[in-house]
């Protein structure tokens, strides 16, 4: 069980609209799922665990509530895997240029 303590950088989740409340013009697949929102900030509660309702102070100094879903959330996007379809392009075009 992941614990967070006061002033930890955390992420909270809120349900904004349940499927029944969603806008009428949406495609069926979107209408079948809720609209959710995530915000990050510093935990205001003394202690909390994942799943608790907590309050946070965001980077703009707003105080807002939600369900704690992550403690010290990381940015995990990266440079991906080497893509075979791209790896040879440089060699190919340099060869073409060399033959001009």
């Amino acid at each position: 069980m992941e614990l967070a303590t006061k002033n930890d950088w955390v992420e909270i989740e809120n349900l904004i609209l349940s499927p029944e409340e969603r806008a009428p013009q949406l495609p069926e697949d979107t209408k079948a799922v809720p609209l959710k929102m995530w915000v990050k900030g510093f935990l205001l509660d003394e202690e909390a665990k994942i799943g608790d309702e907590v309050s946070i102070r965001t980077l703009t100094d707003r105080i807002t509530k939600g369900i704690l879903v992550a403690v010290k959330p990381r940015h995990i996007h990266d440079f991906g895997e080497p893509e075979p379809c791209l790896l040879t392009i440089g060699m190919e075009v340099r060869k073409e240029l060399g033959n001009l």
């Binding site: 904004i16 609209l17 013009q25 979107t30 929102m37 995530w38 990050k40 980077l59 703009t60």
Partner: peptide, 20 residues
């Protein structure tokens, strides 16, 4: 955005983003 000090409010897909 966060690197420049902005607060990001992140949502799932849908035009009701406008409501938020």
């Amino acid at each position: 955005c966060e690197a420049f000090g902005a607060e990001t409010v992140q949502l799932t897909v849908g035009p009701e983003l406008f409501y938020v």
